[in-house]
């Protein structure tokens, strides 16, 4: 099928490897990948801050450009939730209400697309390391994604998956929250990092680069040897 890839702005500019990995995996599975240049952001920052008209300025064009897509696959549970769950609310009672509703079922977070939609869990990946998985909250609670990333990780050769205490507890990123309330965001992140450290894992892996940016930022500042990596980058390893 033709997969329209949605690469969120921060993945594009800071974590290109995530997008590249996704393209490689999807093409290896025999799908045609398209990636419209004009699409860069889902509009979540303005939406989450309460500025809905401004969010629609960003989201409106996205909605138009995606309306003919067969499926839309996103590297982030958070942006995925924005398109799938929050667009219908953001555009309720506007001219684009129907478009938002029509788009929703076509949107997939990457791990769920592989494991649930395509039914593929073994991608022939190899990654010999001890890994713990952090559930991004939007993927977990808005999209209900819990087992898909784990089913994928279990099939990675050489990879040892260990669960951390409070894997489902928020890492503290929360978008603009992380800058508006940095002390709370940081404290939450410290608790998260401590939980991950207890497992003795080499890597904290997630399906959301935004969580990982926050967690990696803390780990580097603390001088911790633990590294962070997006799930797609592991699945693309050979």
């Amino acid at each position: 099928m033709t997969v329209t890839l949605f690469i969120p702005c921060f993945v594009d500019s800071l974590y290109p490897g995530v997008g590249i990995s996704m393209v490689r995996i999807l093409e290896r599975l025999g799908h045609r990948v398209v990636c419209p240049e004009e699409i860069a952001c889902c509009g979540q920052p303005a939406f989450n801050s309460g500025y809905w008209p401004e969010a629609r300025e960003v989201a409106g064009p996205v909605l138009r450009r995606l309306q003919d897509a067969e499926v839309v696959v996103i590297a982030s549970g958070s942006c995925g939730a924005m398109l799938k769950v929050f667009y219908p609310q953001l555009f309720a009672e506007t001219a684009q209400a129907e478009a938002a509703k029509a788009l929703s079922p076509k949107v997939w977070e990457f791990s769920s697309f592989l494991a649930d939609k395509l039914g593929v869990t073994d991608l022939g990946a190899r990654f010999p390391a001890k890994v713990t998985f952090h559930d991004g909250c939007h993927g977990l609670r808005e999209l209900g994604i819990k087992t898909a990333p784990r089913r994928l990780l279990e099939k990675v050769q050489g990879l040892e998956l260990v669960e951390m205490a409070d894997a489902e507890t928020c890492c503290g990123f929360g978008g603009t929250f992380s800058a508006k309330f940095p002390m709370i965001s940081t404290a939450m992140g410290e608790v998260k990092c401590a939980g991950a450290a207890e497992t003795g894992a080499d890597y904290i892996v997630s399906n959301d680069s935004s969580c990982l940016m926050h967690v990696q930022g803390l780990l580097s500042r603390q001088g911790s040897p633990i590294k962070t990596l997006h799930l797609a980058e592991i699945l693309a390893q050979r």
Binding site: I7, S13, L14, P16, A179, K180, P182, H214, S220
Partner: peptide
């Protein structure tokens, strides 16, 4: 507000796009 407690990731040579 960010860098007070967290490092920023380095900018890669090339963006995805």
């Amino acid at each position: 507000a960010w860098t007070g407690s967290r490092d920023l990731p380095p900018m890669p040579e090339q963006s995805f796009k």
